[in-house]
Design a protein around this nucleic acid. Structure first.
Lengths: 170, 170
DNA sequence: CCTGTTCTCCGAACAATATTCGGACGAGCT
DNA sequence: AGCTCGTCCGAATATTGTTCGGAGAACAGG
């Protein structure tokens, strides 16, 4: 299950552009096409790569406003939690659902056309569910995703969160 | 900028598997390969498709614990907000950053090997920044992403959040 | 109703790519 | 050294991407 540096390079390249040709990928990571192909196949079979997704612009779809909605479920029984999770996952405004511990039980990430849509989502949809005890809306000004693979550095595991990495250049 | 049903079918298909061959995509959406190819190119040039990303399993990377960390910045000046955003985006534990309105200024989505790593992230990293006034950690039990494209139904825009969609089948 | 225009879609030809497979090479072990 | 194991490579083949001319539908104006 260990990933060597070649695997990491491949994962990083495929997170930037999953649709580049295998030839380009091979060139980018410095091996022969047959090698990179075999590695990619292995990564998929091992479950390291779960799939490939198109990154669709929400703005281009006319959904310019994003929000993170904190939801508290009462009582937080398994039945209520799972029921709400399934229901909210199927709403067209929803783009992600986090089931969490802490102050709230859910964080629902939504994208809507405008602030009206946001308001409507909260008051027309969420508050109609009886198990929803409390709702708190935070508008998302910016959403930045970060690639999950580190530049190089062998072995990421083992030293959790204590590696040198404090913003100041050494 | 309007998307017809064929565009939507293509976007949906590419969100499920962005690496399927153009032939398969064409078959799936019911057109000739040359047609789907042209549509996909147009969608990319229009910015509807921003790119293609490999979906990498965090568990396979040994990062089994996820959390959403709510951070309040004081004072919330532009300098502080942007400084913190850049800094936290570069931490290896960070997988997403939301800049928000509301109780907190940031929601930081992190993935770490274990709860120790989570604790270390908060007390070793976050609280070392002087502008961080308050931190609240929520463990993420489950993170579900939802495809951003609706099944079919012409025109998504115009009727924000008021479409029929309440879980109960008609 | 006809005609010209525009747009979308198609299918075949060509260029490029993915995929397979036998073997070379080096590391590690006895 | 001799052996085994694993990785990587390069050429051959099958599959795919890409281009382009033209057919057909939808539409507006006469």
């Amino acid at each position: 299950m260990a990933l060597d540096e070649l695997d990491r390079l491949i994962l990083r390249a495929l997170q930037k552009d999953a649709r580049q040709t295998n030839r380009d990928l091979a060139t980018a990571v410095g091996v022969a096409p047959s090698t990179s192909l075999e590695r990619v196949r292995a990564l998929r079979e091992r479950g390291v790569i779960r799939g490939y997704r198109a990154d669709v612009s929400l703005e281009a779809l006319g959904r310019d406003v994003q929000a993170m909605i904190s939801v508290r479920i009462r009582p937080p029984s398994r039945r209520n939690i799972e029921g709400f999770r399934e229901w909210v996952s199927r709403l067209p405004e929803t783009i992600a659902v986090f089931v969490t511990s802490g102050r709230q039980d859910f964080l629902v990430h939504v994208a809507v056309p405008d602030t009206n849509g946001l308001y409507a989502f909260v008051i027309d949809r969420l508050t109609q569910r009886p198990e929803v005890a409390d709702v708190e809306t935070s508008v998302v000004y910016e959403h930045r995703r970060v690639p999950a693979i580190e530049p190089a550095r062998d072995r990421d595991r083992g030293g959790p969160a204590t590696s040198r990495h404090d913003g100041a250049a050494p």
